[in-house]
Amino acid sequence: MYDFDIERPSRIADAVKLMSDSTDAQPLGGGQTLIPTLKQRLASPERLVSMAGIDEMVGICKDDAGRLCIGGATTHAAVAADGSYPGLSGLAARIGDPAVRNRGTIGGSLANNDPAACYPAAALGSGATIVTNKREIAADDYFRGMFDTALEEGEIITEVKFPIPEVSHYAKFVQPASRFALVGVFVAKFADGVRVAVTGASESGVHRWSAAEEALSRSFSAGSIGSLEAPSADGLITDLHGTGAYRAHLVKVMTGRAVAAAS
């Protein structure tokens, strides 16, 4: 690693100032992805601003609209234990491993937007709102492709607001080495329709599968997926662990399983 300073502010305002004071500052969530990246010297920030000590960014509550509001520095373990949005807690419980879940945060994961990460599927699949120190961003506008988001330089995810669907489930098919999602599908059924978000599969990162959403909005059953064509393999990832065609097939299978298991 190159050296840097670590700052541990206790208020969002201080964090924002520490970010803007430096020419090359980076927010530090749980560090579960950032630290391995730094070890490889793939990034050379001058300053890391840790979110862990900002109490107003840690915790889970419901807002007046009934949305589940999760502070940006809340760990995966805390979300997994919460249970008030079972599909989301179930997803959080399958990120990484227990020690990773004790450090990794929702804000860090969404800011990084790894194309095989789990949380982006939940945020997009729930139609969540990403709240930053500057603004609120709808999930549909937030994810811009692999490792790319709508976040601007120095912008910090302070909270994520999840509408709670009637039923939901995340079906994850793991890549055997990294245990990230080879394909992960988050299905959420709301009163006004169904959202299906797919992670792990596409070269453009997390995305919605509109054909499945339409079919499931008409009839929310695994059978609705069974009669669909698998999505096109164009633009899907081909690597050591699976071809685009295999991933396309898995998208369909995992969507069906998510629907079948949705509760």
Partner: peptide
């Protein structure tokens, strides 16, 4: 490298001493 920090298992190679 797993150790306990404030009673929770963490990977000490993926946490800064300052934290």
């Amino acid at each position: 490298c797993v150790v306990h920090v404030n009673g929770e298992a963490v990977k000490s190679c993926t946490m800064f001493a300052a934290e």
